[in-house]
Design a protein around this nucleic acid. Structure first.
Length: 111
DNA sequence: AATGTGACATACC
DNA sequence: TGGTATGCCACAT
């Protein structure tokens, strides 16, 4: 992972801007960065987020259905849900309840 | 330079 | 309502 790859870096920065108790989707982040079709890359970026010196709240990023698809990549599979619930987000059956209500759209929120 | 790949998204049976 | 197929793009090898 090079510190130069701006894409990964941008992803990390956007994720860090997600407020507590809110969630967003890989696609939304990709769209905000201008590459709407590279949602998969956002997930890939999260793959390397653990190596970042600054913390990246990857648990606040779910898929378009509000499903915690990335939970398996955390320290423990339950970590993601626990972190979310800790922030006031209810997770049921591995998906965020009232997802649209907690949804935080960088395109809208950040402009 | 080419090929493989993935924590997605959407369209279509 | 849910699985399958396909597009997609940046990164690793």
């Amino acid at each position: 992972m090079k510190a130069h790859s701006s894409f990964f870096n941008d992803v990390y920065e956007v994720v860090r801007l997600i407020p507590q108790g809110r969630v967003t989707s890989y696609g939304a982040i990709a769209k905000y960065l201008g590459t709407a079709k590279s949602a998969r890359m956002v997930g890939w970026a999260m793959n390397g987020s653990h190596a970042e010196t600054k913390p990246v709240p990857a648990h606040r990023v779910v898929n378009s259905q509000g499903l915690l698809t990335g939970k398996a990549h955390f320290a423990t599979p339950d970590r993601m849900q626990q972190l979310l619930e800790k922030e006031g987000i209810t997770v049921q059956d591995e998906s965020v309840t009232e997802y649209t209500k907690h949804f935080w759209d960088p395109t809208t929120e950040l402009g």
